[in-house]
Amino acid sequence: MNTDVAPRLGGWQQTWRLAAAAAVGIPTWLCVGVLLRWQEADPGSWFRVGDPLVALCCLTALLWRRRFPFAVALAVAIASPASALATGAALLALASLSARRRPVEIAVVSSAFVAASQFAVGLYPGAEPPAALWVQLAFPALTAGVAVAAGLALGARRVEVRSLRERAESAEREQAARAAQARALERNRIAREMHDVLAHRISLVAMQAGALDHRSDLAAEENRVLVRGIADGSRQALEELRDVLGVLRAEPDRPEPPQPSLDRVPDLVADARASGLDVTLTTTMTGTPSDVTGRTCYRIVQEGLTNAAKHAPGTRVQVTLEGSAGCGLGVSVRNSPATETGPRPPASGFGLLGLTERVGLAGGELGHHPTPDNGYVLTARLPWPDPAHERNT
């Protein structure tokens, strides 16, 4: 396995690791000195000077083990057998390299450590090497094996910790993405409801106000009718806005107010007609569709009338509803070219965009395009399953 999982160490972590390596070497160095005294052999200048200098060089080299792990570990493994005080440095170097979990590097450094230990015995006078070669190799091999096992365990632990950290970070990112998506969906829902509720009323009010502004030949009674229509439309817009805000602020277990349905389409057409829009409703349906289909149909007609009032003042609008169970529900809102001139509100396109999403969620298809006579038509096809056929299947 070829993975490098060694983390960057802080100053205090580096210090205590080197201190621990030195602390491990001191007892070994003292034991060698006691053994030499017990054998009545003079430790010599190497034990008192050379051994500590080699250990100091090994500990100093360990400062760069993170930047040059293989080179430092190999150098320390070759030099440390010549110094009893450098035993801890050799263990730390082998363990640090083994934590990287690279078998080839571990094998090379371990072999170098065992081989170098065979040439260091002669540095200590009075220390007679055993006769059997396997005995001479067993102790350094066992020491290297312990260090390698500790390093592999540390590397496995680091891999596990890193994996858990990545999983936690991934879960946090996914949670943040889901929260952002939920906020976006909620904003879209609020915007769609606001548009469906307010755009129709405000468009009718704007159309009536425009008539007051551009028609100077209206009688007093006609002016009063338009003013009363503006007042009623504004009041109804405020009431519907309050209803929408009430739904958005309601508790989860609080029932929502009744949603518009198919049977309210005639009222919608009547309101538009009372506001001055020339609207004709033609219905050739047999039966009653589901609530979702009826509510979507209501929103389609509402959007068509709103666009006609905003962008084609003085037009004639034909609303057609046709269909039956098993054949689907067809909705068409067609308006003729505009006959009145004046400033037009800007077209945002968000109404048709939200309506397309609403129709798609209901399983239908929406279409809209200009007609050859410069009018406009909004069409939709909504599903209307046959309950009898569903029961039979």
Rank of each mutant, 00 (worst) to 15 (best):
T3P: 06
V5K: 01
A6E: 13
R8M: 10
L9M: 15
Q14F: 07
L18K: 04
V24W: 10
G25Q: 08
I26R: 12
I26D: 09
P27R: 07
L30W: 06
C31V: 02
D42K: 01
P43A: 06
A77Q: 00
S80Q: 02
S80N: 03
L85P: 01
L85H: 03
L91I: 14
P103M: 14
E105K: 11
A115T: 07
G122I: 03
P125T: 09
V135R: 11
F139I: 09
A141N: 07
L142G: 08
A153Y: 10
G155H: 08
S163R: 15
R167C: 15
S170Y: 15
R183E: 05
R189F: 10
I190H: 12
V197P: 01
I202D: 07
I202R: 12
L204N: 02
Q208C: 02
A209R: 11
D213L: 11
D217K: 03
E221P: 00
L226P: 08
D232L: 01
R235A: 11
E239K: 11
R242T: 11
G246E: 04
P255D: 09
P258S: 09
L262W: 05
D263W: 11
D267G: 14
D278R: 02
D278L: 03
T280H: 14
G294I: 02
R295P: 08
E303L: 02
K310I: 12
K310D: 13
G314D: 04
T320I: 12
C327M: 10
V331N: 13
T339Y: 06
F350G: 00
G351P: 14
L353T: 12
G364Y: 04
R391Y: 13
